[in-house]
Design a protein around this nucleic acid. Structure first.
Lengths: 342, 342
DNA sequence: TGTTAGCACTCATTTAAAGAGAGTGCTAAT
DNA sequence: ATTAGCACTCTCTTTAAATGAGTGCTAACA
């Protein structure tokens, strides 16, 4: 059977209507609110075909039709039109430039959740392949030194190390020079045993401190490995009855609390990377089990300097894809404009 | 009417039973599972009295009784016995010493949520009245310097400042000395305009950088002002039908997401401070509106060096107070032992 | 041949009624 | 003071009937 123009129009009408109301939509509705000028009987025949083809389905024999995952997919791939109007409105919701990455991401998550009425998650940009820019040891008191590590993206990590023997200011200065000359500009992968042993040799009696510092650097990176994730609007899921029953709501909320699950997802999606950086996962397409009944739209964003992170919007399968994609695109541009100069 | 010994025993039995089952408890149950050896009719009379006195109430005419807030209050104040057995079990659930405050607090929250099956929240220790221990400026690249601030509790803050004119290493060194000699050992309140103007004078042409640094310090502290709050086990509320309906669940989850509300609460409770540092809020006693149908048990903990924070456990009013108080006490001791040496 | 009116049929949802069960309050006897 | 007994209350469950949206199919129509 072929999916001719008329069938497409009907499918689109069914989906549009279902997105709005959340109720199964019947033949009569389509017949009335469509410019096709066909009787409900004809629509019924067409809908039977569409069902056979797998684009829509009936919750039970005498109900209207709802889109199947396959139907949504077709809609998203070929029939969606971004809502310009919504996009414009969104512009008002400004994201302000923030010095702290954390503040920025929290703000973006909040603004998006408020604007879309769905749940949002956002992963901090990866520093993984970033280069070391600056290392500094300073004495904090007799028994402790502070290690500060700055990477290319101006991400700062610090770590306090206990130290047994009192180090003189001079030694500290020497160590600082040693560390910086050897390590600056290197990415984490490039710090190999060779470099480490050379440094240890040059450090002489203080070689153990060098080890400690290297460990601290490694840890700083490893800590970054399980990426920071910020979420917002979790409780928006209660707006959608199909997600709000105890079982599902509880699982979803748990997922949003145990952020590591989200982390994997966001990172993988970033790796896949489509043309615009925007991807749509419908129902079972999401790799996260608790989101089987949701759809997720993700967008990769960039903060200049090649620092990329991912934003995800989680809602019911009948989410307003048009609006969400538009909104995400707006945010992408805003972030890009705000941080391009870096 | 007087609350004699027998009435107390009956009240206690009612509460105990209700805590276990969550169902209204009837006269027959009490009569059977109590060593009072009284018929259900007698119990009924006594329960009528208890109801008149306001300790228990009936959901409807022909139901058993459930404790009122007043009843719970009496129970918590005078009839509770901590469960030694539970406490022992808890000991197994070790909290490991962590270098990063953040990691530690997240862990404590998680362990507690898992152990109690309630929702938990924990506020990071306040650094408010803390003294500055160490400040350091370093050049990160031509246009930016890094300000690192360490306070007494070894809490590290950093901030990257843009800087117009290239500063020489010498100037930076001088500024570092200037800042440290003037500011070290001072608490935030003690840094007044006087000190600032003296410093500016001594900094000469670089006085604007001094301003910037002072601002950075202030901001570092202000950022601390809205305390970090970590939560865990939010979705445990679904275990308790009386909290799990959409309306309430949604509000509660929202409260746990918008942490500033929790922050105020935790800080206030810390200020009130009872003997053991453990406080119980029953129903309407909690200042957070969305927790009107919950009980909250809070405990102040200390991490050495006078750094105090608060842990809160949120559950239904029929929470297992005995166990929760015991568990919190254990955690208090554990934290105390782990961090005393600091 | 595609379209449509008409009608019997299906099935979730609503409404009403009837029962069952748990528990109370009160009275009268011990 | 305690208790057995009984009528009464109120929720919850079950069952049955009514409602209504929507379908599938057939036969007539352009």
């Amino acid at each position: 059977m072929e999916l001719d123009e008329r069938k497409k129009k009907i499918l689109q009408a069914v989906i549009r209507n279902y997105l709005e109301t959340g109720e199964p939509v019947g033949s009569r509705t389509i017949s009335k609110y469509t410019d096709l000028n066909l009787s409900s009987a004809t629509i019924r025949n067409e809908m039977a075909d569409l069902e056979e083809m797998g684009y829509i389905l009936q919750p039970h024999t005498s109900a209207g039709r709802i889109p199947s995952d396959k139907g949504y997919r077709l809609y998203v791939d070929t029939m969606m039109e971004e809502k310009e109007r919504e996009v414009v409105e969104m512009k008002e919701m400004l994201v302000e430039r923030q010095d702290k990455m954390e503040t920025l991401l929290k703000q973006v998550a909040r603004v998006l959740a408020q604007n879309t009425q769905y749940a949002t998650m956002i992963s901090a940009p990866q520093t993984k392949r970033n280069k070391l820019k600056f290392i500094q040891l300073s004495r904090v008191d007799e028994k402790q030194i502070l290690v500060v590590i700055v990477t290319e993206g101006n991400v700062v990590k610090n770590n306090i190390l206990p130290v047994n023997d009192g180090l003189s200011d001079e030694t500290l200065l020497k160590l600082n020079i040693l560390l910086n000359t050897h390590l600056n500009g290197l990415s984490i992968d490039e710090i190999n045993l060779g470099i480490i042993s050379v440094m240890k040799q040059q450090a002489g009696i203080h070689s153990d401190i060098v080890s400690d510092v290297i460990d601290a650097v490694a840890e700083g990176i490893r800590a970054e490995e399980d990426v920071e994730i910020y979420t917002s609007g979790t409780n928006n899921i209660f707006r959608y009855p199909e997600l709000a029953d105890q079982q599902k709501a509880s699982e979803l909320i748990n997922t949003f609390e145990e952020k590591h699950l989200l982390g994997e997802f966001l990172q993988d999606t970033q790796a896949e990377e489509s043309g615009t950086g925007i991807q749509v996962y419908i129902g079972a397409e999401t790799p996260v089990r608790s989101m089987q009944d949701c759809s997720v739209v993700t967008a990769t964003y960039e903060l200049g300097g090649g620092m990329k992170g991912t934003i995800g919007i989680v809602g019911p399968k009948r989410m307003d894809y048009d609006k969400v994609v538009g909104t995400l695109r707006t945010i992408q541009t805003q972030l890009d404009e705000l941080y391009r100069k870096d």
